[in-house]
Nucleic acid binder design. Sequence first.
RNA 1: AGGCCCGUAGCUCAGCUGGUUAGAGCGCUACGUUGACAUCGUAGAGGUCAGCGGUUCAAGUCCGCUCGGGCCUACCA
Length: 915
Amino acid sequence: MSDLGRDAVSSSQELDKRFDPRAYERAWQRRWAESGIFRAEAPSTRPPFCNMIPPPNVTGKLHVGHALQTALEDLLTRWRRMSGDNALWLPGTDHAGISTQLMVERQLAAEGTDRRTLGRERFVERMWAWKRQYHANIREQLDLLGASCDWSRERFTLDAGLSAAVREAFVRLHGEGLIYRGEYLVNWSPLLGTAISDLEVETKTVKGKLYYIAYPLEESPGGGEAGEVVVATTRPETMLGDTAIAFHPDDERYRHLLGKAAVLPLVGRRLPFVADAAVEPEFGTGLVKLTPFHDPNDFEMARRHGLPGVSVIDQQGRMTAEAGAEFAGLDRFEARAKVVERLRQEGLLRKVEDHVHNVGHSQRSGEPVEPLVSMQWFCDMSGMAPRALAAQREGRLRLIPESWEKTWEHWLENIKPWCISRQLWWGHQIPAWYTEDGRCFVARNVEEAAAAAGTDRLTQDPDVLDTWFSSGLWPFSTLGWPQRTVDYDTFYPTSVLITGYDILFFWVARMVMLGLHFTGEAPFAAVHLTGLVRDASGVKMSKTRGNVLDPIELVEEYGADAVRFTLTSLDIPGRDVPLNLEQLAGYRAFGNKIWNAARFALGRVGEARVEAALDPHGLAAPERWILSRLSRLAADVDSRFRAYRFDEACNRLYHFFWGDLCDWYIELAKPALSGDAPRPRTGEVLLGVLDRSLRLLHPVMPFLTEEVWQRLPGHEAIHPETICLAPYPGREESWESAEVEADMEVLMHVVTRVRGLRSEMGLPPKARLSLHLSAPDAAGAAAAGDGAAAPADARAHFLAEHQHLIRFLCRVEAVSFGPPGDGPQAAARRDLVDGVDIALAVLAADRGGLDTAERERLTRELEKLAGEIDRAERRLADADFLAKAPPAVVAGGRTRLAELRERQKRIRAILDGGA
RNA sequence: AGGCCCGUAGCUCAGCUGGUUAGAGCGCUACGUUGACAUCGUAGAGGUCAGCGGUUCAAGUCCGCUCGGGCCUACCA
């Protein structure tokens, strides 16, 4: 395949004293890419694992949210690849219609031109040039993050294959009557000059006014006095398009108006009264003016009552000729002021109130959306939604975390037609052609349309499709659909999708619906929804706030591995991701720790080599302990990965490496490695543990682990070339021993307590100490504890056997064993931990008195103990507790109480004696 | 209006199916350059787990309510 493993990236075989991710990250990414090790097989006999990148927009650079998703997707892919799966992570980008077009239009504006001047063809060329440039940036950024994508399968939503898939999907849906064209009220963005879907409308709470306007009643035929009615509105300019007035059918105040009419001020149109339950009697005056063509509610009501509508606002947000000569051409907000002014002149403005209400804004361009009637293409989702719901309910599609299920259900149960046409130039042009006499033919291409139309004098529909239409096909269009390709057969349906919850409806739901519709299967078995990345204080990142962090700058400063580890460990289900720099620095320090632990090991393991198998027989306790811990770690990591709890997996990896391996095992190994107290195969175990730790860490920290692993003598026995393809370590039951772990735990607790005593006594650094240990404890609690714990004398034996380790770790001059009374009488301090009696003696010359600070501390300790003893006693005196709690819990309580009492006694003795 | 999430140490957050003494990282304090690491080591201070009530022998952990914060969905013009 390649010469990947032949020599490490840096020429020297030894690890540099300085840890610097920049020295190797880029180089490894390059080597991996060149070697082709991330290319998936098709067909393959290995189990498939596939995840599709949520295609980033080709609008520019990746943000931290992308980095989070990349870290998780790469983690899963690397983990499954090492576990032997045929892993495919398919990369690609999205043409992102509106956003990309806006970027290029901004560029054109800076050059003093615009797209209309350029013309459609040249504009689209320009768009492609942009795409090529930014696409390269995105590839580069994914590389820097260590993404192990299969670039040979890269896709772009506008490339030929995907475009064919889009046309196929459109034609089929149209044939099934699910895509149709019609004139309806849509959300219109005057600034963008296009219709947008419901999802692209953002509701904002704004302070506005509520205008009360008097509408004179039509004079009755008999010539009786007419009077007036008052309606309330937030948008007076729309009155020019009113065609009726409505009230609630039960509203006694207005019932008599049924069959009558009012006269629209300024216009003179006759407005009939209608009764409709949608009217809220409590709001305003209980009378609603109906403007069917500029308000969704009114549109519905007008339809129910067979009322016409008048378009008074055009696609630029200006008043139309139908609004009357006085207003035609005015901007909608100018028109508002003018209408109000005119009403005031006419004496018809009764009242103006401040009013806080919700107004739909265009998500991309920010201005208030204008509901208006226009000819658009729609996709009817009402048949697809129930299938998507069923897939989730029946477990064919898992949402992780599950808390999203209700939201998912709510949206799908209230699905509305999807407006899929956009009045833009960048995107998939709608595959519909019109004859000169206006007939419409939907087809895969113009030839097909011409054949159907019987003429080639055809014009293609100028509109393009909503970006989300093509991305909705992503999981299968990228694999060659509608062709039945080998890739499709090998990888579809895919394994998992990782994306942000903000596009659950935009993208995930549509992929599921379209996937089920076209392929009969949910496009992925699980969706892991990540939170939104926020800044350190939990505030959403935004350019205007200036709190945006660029993932690539973070990689430069902290290294990709630290960025990945940080983001991964912050992926807590159902929570957003607060990113702070201290944390990044902390995980970079973790990298440093790994680096230095490896340096230590490489310098000390002698002739040992990494072995594929490690036999625990004949090993001493510290070696058996670390192997036991390692096996449990591997089991934990596996279960946490499977549960999508990457945060927990990271925490366990971190604490194993730093705590178990560095803080304890390496320290325990030092005396053995330096020849002071040799033990069997210490070097082999240290190297073996390091090898497996690196492999376990690799999916999270690919660069560092590869760089270090390549230096381990004998690593070729695990994989000849790269850690990326080395087997992922699993549980090793023969390594596990609860007994050894329990014994070692006592030893470690004793060591920690002795260090504590030493520090509490405020001794000079060079103070010479001797330690006397005894077990069973003098309290004679007779509590040998539960079955798992060793009998006390065996425990003493174990400690005695490992006294050289205790001496080394506690840095005491001498350790002795025996009944408590045998200890040095000059014992300055005594304590009890895990049933082991500790007596620490100091040479008189090194010892000062019991100072005030220590006296205070001990007094506080005594108070705390008293409280705990009290609680434990009361609990053990409770008959209900004794009767109902499991025996193990009761026994545990007794042991603990005995130990608490004993500690209390000792501390009292110290306070009395040390005076 | 409906739904979801959150309120645990100074900060950012863990705490799985309820079980002894509530954890981590960072920050803080004291001490320490022993031959992997000062991007370090050892020890330490710091929490009435938002509040109230309930279930239970036992509740950050389960249930209800209240308060506070965030988000999503929604056609009161």
